[in-house]
């Protein structure tokens, strides 16, 4: 029974590693591929949780994660990027080194917080929750340190991956909630996509600093 937790920790750890990988990717296409890898790892983690906890409804969650986030969204974003012609490097606000150091500190913070808050509960759930919180914080960090609109979308959905991981680790949310979360993310994706196209139409770039320049703000 013990290796069930080890495998789930392994998969969550893979997701955390991909989160760090997202922080240092240089090209848009690579960012999307890394995100797809993270989503597939999430699908595997959820599926493993479904099998080991004996909760078949979680297989549906895993399926949603795999098809939507592992395949549909990355492919859609790849196409968008191709149509917009932005295979270039991703503009960053801070350097890769700084971003990784901050990410490391956030992971430590997540561990410290979860270990304090869940003091006295079963250790495997604590570690899983700590990893999930770290993934959420890293997703947020990615939204901040990137200037490209596409990478902000990816950061947002990486946060959502962390949320689903936390939900399955902590005895699971009802399926209805997950479905609605998935749909809300999909809607958010559409909104983001519309914005990206509008920005592109108007400014010939999807660097969001262009918006600031248009408003006459200082950087």
């Amino acid at each position: 029974m013990n290796h069930a937790y080890e495998i789930s920790h392994l998969l969550a750890g893979v997701m955390l590693v991909t989160s760090f990988a997202l922080l240092y990717q240089q090209r848009v296409a690579a960012v999307l591929n890394t995100f797809a890898a993270q989503s597939i790892a999430l699908a595997l983690a959820v599926a493993w949780a479904a099998w080991s906890q004996g909760r078949p409804d979680l297989f549906i969650t895993a399926l949603i994660a795999l098809t939507l986030k592992g395949i549909v969204i990355p492919v859609a974003l790849h196409r968008t990027v191709a149509r917009l012609g932005i295979h270039r490097e991703v503009e960053k606000v801070v350097g890769v080194g700084v971003a990784l150091m901050v990410g490391l500190a956030l992971t430590g913070l997540a561990q410290a917080l979860l270990f304090k808050v869940t003091h006295g509960t079963a250790s495997h759930a604590r570690e899983e929750l700590a990893l999930a919180l770290a993934i959420i914080l890293l997703g947020f960090l990615m939204m901040i340190v990137r200037r490209n609109a596409v990478t902000q979308i990816v950061g947002f959905m990486s946060m959502e991956n962390g949320l689903i991981l936390a939900a399955t680790g902590a005895r699971g949310m009802p399926l209805v909630v997950e479905v609605s979360v998935a749909f809300s993310v999909l809607i958010a994706l559409f909104v983001f996509a519309v914005f990206v196209f509008r920005i592109r139409e108007r400014f010939d770039t999807i660097d969001i600093e262009a918006l600031d320049r248009m408003r006459g703000d200082r950087r």
């Binding site: 947020f140 960090l141 939204m143 901040i144 902000q152 969001i208 918006l211 600031d212 703000d217």
Partner: peptide, 10 residues
Amino acid sequence: SIRRYLVLMF
């Protein structure tokens, strides 16, 4: 900018 608001929230 949106990014600065996100920084504040974060």
